[in-house]
């Protein structure tokens, strides 16, 4: 009975007709009563440092781990989603070859967010760039804006998604930095899967974190640093 009273009172108070509006005060109460999580904090900036000298040519473990974790097919046709790819690069002047993983760079100033007409493409307070698929209309502007070709469009209906990783046809998606794992205190799947420990995950803002210490002590680069996007993914040995 008390719930009904509450609804009635808020009806009277707000004098707005829609039930959705009337519910809001009730919801506040529940949240206060049950709210334990702090949510994403802007004190934190999640990032990864990829040591290309440790990344083995031909190894695909990070990619497989990502596919498994996020329920991607693992196919690489033009219409298949790829959140992380291994790329091979070669310096033609001296023949030096490198193999490294490439994914959404979780830019501090993400062009994909700038162009999105619906605010679906967004950056969380802790630096993780995501697509809010509840809002995404599938226009794919963000795919064109991303300098790293990091995003994929879901072309076909999907079934049997990971309960922690909703994905669906008509929306754009990309590496989420395994946000569902981070929020449980786990590392991203690729970082965990790499036997050579080539992918170091951590908080770039925490001076005592392993990643911040390493960034202080070795030479690292951001891919296309000239664009000034201040990426959260850094590379060593490029």
């Amino acid at each position: 009975m008390s719930d009904i009273d509450l609804t009635r009172r808020s009806f009277l108070k707000t004098s707005a007709g829609a039930a959705a509006v009337a519910i809001a005060p009730g919801m506040m109460l529940f949240q206060v009563a049950h709210g334990d999580t702090q949510g994403a904090s802007d004190k934190v900036r999640w990032g990864m440092l990829i040591d290309t000298t440790q990344c083995k040519d031909g190894c695909n473990d990070c990619v497989s781990a990502c596919n498994k974790e996020n329920g991607l097919s693992g196919e690489t046709k033009a219409t298949d989603s790829q959140w992380i790819r291994k790329i091979e690069i070669k310096d033609v002047s001296n023949g030096r070859e490198l193999s490294l993983p490439m994914m959404c760079q979780h830019c501090e100033h993400p062009p994909c967010v700038d162009v999105c007409p619906t605010n679906a493409s967004m950056k969380r307070a802790d630096g993780i760039v995501l697509v809010d698929k509840h809002r995404c209309i599938g226009c794919r502007y963000c795919m064109m804006a991303c300098p790293y070709k990091a995003r994929s469009f879901v072309h076909e209906p999907l079934t049997d998604q990971n309960p922690d990783v909703p994905r669906g046809k008509g929306t754009v998606e990309a590496c989420t930095l395994c946000v569902h794992r981070i929020d449980q205190g786990l590392k991203p799947a690729c970082s965990e899967a790499c036997a050579n420990k080539a992918i170091l995950f951590g908080d770039l803002n925490d001076a005592d974190s392993e990643i911040a210490k390493k960034l202080r002590s070795v030479a690292t680069t951001q891919v296309r640093a000239d664009l000034g996007l201040n990426t959260g993914i850094r590379y060593q040995g490029l």
Binding site: A24, M27, Q31, H34, G35, T37, Q38, G39, A40, M122, R124, A125, D126, L130, D132, K133, H134, V179, D183
Partner: peptide, 13 residues
């Protein structure tokens, strides 16, 4: 309402 909190703010109730 809570889906927005969860996705956008990381508030997972």
């Amino acid at each position: 309402h809570e889906r927005d909190d969860a996705v956008r703010k990381g508030l997972r109730d």
